[in-house]
Design a protein around this nucleic acid. Structure first.
Lengths: 339, 339
DNA sequence: TTTATTTGCGCAATCGTTGTCGGGAACGTT
DNA sequence: AACGTTCCCGACAACGATTGCGCAAATAAA
């Protein structure tokens, strides 16, 4: 009584549903005149095919699942923004799932996405995830998957990531060139892909400039609140004290900034601070925060584009590859030494 | 071959699909023994009912649609976070739509949500929306709707909003009490509900403290980028010059802050600045920004709770009401005058 | 005129699940 | 012995759309 179905059209035009269906999708074996009639009537009634019926029929659901640790995070919300923009243009819907950094919820979310018959999955792994069997299974069932940001190399899928190595290298190099010698690295859990890459970039820069890598200067946070305080304390307790902090996430950067200010440590006079973040307010902070800028939205866009290509081309799509989106250095007050 | 259906179970146990279906939902007219058999087998095969088939069948899709202007906005991403948390607990999925502040896309999104057979809709109107016929129609079709944040009073639905009047009143009062006399109000488009309420709070405070309301001090922005600059210029050009700015959104607050700094106007010495925002970095800005804090996540949660109640109780749910979530004042440096 | 071929369309199955109906077996009641 | 009840369960249709198959009429070829 409510929404128009193919049956309504068939009844009204005294045709069979098959004919209407074929007319609507322009099958060659329908009389042009009949076709016109159907099309006009459908237009007039504002007919829209029922996507639920279509998914049930087995074709596609025109929905993609997006699994991220947390929506209320500037990085991910921007990435989702990019994803949604592409998906919308291509006629797909986006169903969002949050893992809240929990492996269990990630597995549950993957199941749910599957049950919803999403045509493909975009995922950024939770910090707890080390085992990726739940994804491998999907892959074997031929569900298109694209990983982004936090990816696992155990999984042979297309991946879209920022250039973490180069970004970390550039940040570290910048600190070294501005005269810093004991550069601490405050980062996220070690088993996450981006942690490794950033750490590698950090080490490579140290090495290139003849500074020793001291693992006591590296601290791994989780994603809990206010843990930066503790980590900063531990690092400051060392002697000689670090003269620079390189942090690997928004939260840690802000946490470190707040922690240092609370301890009345002058930035950048006493210690420099640079973040690997995505904050749009970095230059309004006090002091304005130097950052390695990640193109979150672009990453989301590219991931969505790749996924849709995978969905629509299936077998004949390009083989899994890793797309590295460049990041760039934004130098601001927090690392500006005037000596 | 892939996912387990009720048919597989029926075949394996030599039963009919009807019986299996009934056994699974514990119908009383199934032999307990049979029931046990079915349940066990289903458990073993990890059977999950196909939600697509269920939605087609006409019952519920266990999905709710969320329509917001923009995900990459701290307010909305937090609200969505709250929504998702509640939805997840109650077994619902969240399908996200962005309007990008476009009326046309809002209408399209509403249609899409409908086509997806969402069980209910949470919506925060786009800034372009003045006509709400597209929603009234849904309402007449008995689709549960809850409006939040940017709501229309043309529509008799449950609404969840921050206490915009009280928040604006408190902000204005605070500025007045700290000695400000010409308080400018930088706000969002006038036809949005929250604009009206905040404006009313602003006016009420002026009136209560015997200050004249000057409409030249009120400027309406859109949601475009970098427009704050222009508005700030216009306001500063007046004489006497405003000695305080009260802004109504994150973007305007940050824009005003940046604009004032670029003009080398000292905050709070020359002008005070207070925002009606949801920024988590407000106290790390330079100067730290006084704000009226909106409980975005809580608003999302309450909206989701109300919606699900509406969905599950249908007719016998509570009648539409407006839930006002209190906001509070956070005074920081940007309004701290030491005279 | 008879036989092929094309054109245009309908029938029925299908996807996974549920609701309506009805029917056989076992039991209890006269 | 005949009838009425329960108790369990299966057949069938339906939700909205697609699709393989087949069939009739019209046209072309023989």
């Amino acid at each position: 009584m409510d929404t128009v179905t193919i049956k309504d059209i068939a009844r009204a035009l005294n045709l069979s549903t098959s004919t209407v269906s074929r007319a609507l999708r322009g099958s060659y074996e329908i009389n042009p005149e009949t076709k016109r009639l159907v099309l006009e009537y459908a237009e007039r009634l504002n007919y829209r095919p029922n996507p639920i019926a279509l998914s049930l029929k087995g074709s596609s659901s025109r929905a993609i699942g997006v699994i991220v640790p947390q929506i209320a995070n500037y990085y991910f919300s921007q990435a989702i923004n990019g994803i949604e923009a592409i998906a919308y243009n291509r006629g797909y819907h986006v169903i969002i799932f949050q893992t809240h950094e929990s492996y269990e919820r990630e597995v549950a979310n993957v199941q749910q996405a599957l049950a919803r018959k999403v045509d493909g999955l975009l995922i950024s792994l939770s910090s707890e995830t080390s085992d990726v069997e739940h994804l491998r299974e999907l892959q074997e069932r031929n569900l298109p998957i694209v990983q982004f940001d936090r990816v696992s190399n155990e999984l042979n899928t297309t991946k879209v990531v920022a250039d973490n190595f180069a970004g970390a290298f550039a940040a570290t190099e910048h600190l070294i060139k501005s005269g810093r010698k004991r550069i601490a690295h405050l980062t996220i859990p070690p088993w996450i892909s981006i942690t490794q890459e950033r750490l590698a970039g950090y080490r490579a820069a140290l090495e290139q400039y003849g500074l020793e890598y001291d693992e006591n200067l590296v601290r791994y946070g989780t994603f809990g609140p206010d843990e930066a305080d503790k980590l900063v304390d531990e690092l400051l307790a060392q002697s000689p004290r670090p003269d620079a902090f390189f942090t690997a996430s928004d939260r840690l950067a802000l946490g470190a900034l707040a922690a240092l200010q609370r301890r009345n440590i002058a930035i950048p006079q006493e210690v420099s601070l640079i973040g690997f973040t995505n904050l749009n307010v970095a230059d309004l902070l006090s002091p304005s925060l130097s950052t390695v800028v990640q193109p979150a939205q672009e990453i989301g866009q590219m991931a969505a584009e790749r996924l849709i290509e995978l969905i629509e081309r299936k077998q004949k799509a390009a083989p899994p590859s890793t797309i590295v989106v460049p990041s760039h250095l934004a130098v601001r007050e927090s690392t500006r030494v005037s000596e």
